[in-house]
């Protein structure tokens, strides 16, 4: 019976296929990883340098790409009125990331769409119209992060962010982080999003 079995039904054939397919896929993945990482390091072609927090940024529909696209305008808009050099900007954004991890934000929110679904996505939180105007935004964000229970806008759901003991410094870091993150080229996610200062453009 064994002699009549075609090669493609044999154990040894599939063993070889398994090994080659796995190795081949893995090699391609490694190659693509090198390319992707080079494009997504801060200051690469798709992820802005941390000093982007000194700039005015927005998110607009791009007619040639036919999708939404973050835009870094040629106009200063220093965070908390202070221009930061590369090192200072990195440190502020880094404090934001450490705080975001230490406070476990991602088990309520999503960042770049990953995380939990109990609270809004933060990918473009910096650009959200919920902050009213660009002028009031920084102050409102600072207040809210330090005292979320009090300043919560729950839109009738009563779902409030908990008191996480975020300090003013940490709050500034988080805000810097959100501003930087809103400039990442996310291939048009989220779609159809109207940024806070959209009317001005």
């Amino acid at each position: 019976m064994n002699e009549n079995r075609p090669v493609w039904a044999s154990e040894s054939f599939w063993k070889k296929v398994a090994v080659w397919v796995t190795a081949g896929s893995f090699v391609i993945l490694i190659f693509l990883t090198f390319d992707s990482i080079s494009q997504i390091t801060a200051g690469g072609s798709r992820v802005a340098a941390y000093t982007v927090i000194n700039k005015k940024v927005t998110y607009r529909f791009d007619k040639t790409k036919n999708r939404y696209q973050p835009v870094i305008l040629d106009q200063d808009e220093p965070l908390f009125g202070q221009m930061l050099d590369e090192k200072q900007a990195y440190e502020l954004v880094n404090l934001g990331k450490l705080t975001i991890q230490a406070k476990n934000c991602m088990n309520c929110h999503t960042l770049l769409g990953n995380g939990a679904y109990y609270a809004p996505d933060l990918t473009k939180a910096w650009l959200d119209q919920g902050w009213g105007t660009a002028a009031s935004r920084e102050m409102l964000m600072l207040q809210f992060l330090q005292n979320p229970g009090k300043y919560a806008r729950t839109y009738g759901t009563n779902r409030k962010m908990p008191q996480l003991g975020i300090t003013e410094k940490e709050a500034k870091g988080i805000i810097a982080y959100l501003k930087w993150m809103s400039t990442i080229d996310t291939n048009g996610f989220p779609n159809n999003f109207t940024a806070i200062d959209a009317e001005e453009d």
């Binding site: 959200d128 806008r153 729950t154 839109y155 009738g156 759901t157 779609n191 999003f193």
Partner: peptide, 13 residues
């Protein structure tokens, strides 16, 4: 709603 915070809560409620 285009994924704003308002849109998020509109869907949640």
């Amino acid at each position: 709603e285009g994924s704003t915070w308002g849109g998020y809560f509109a869907a949640q409620s």
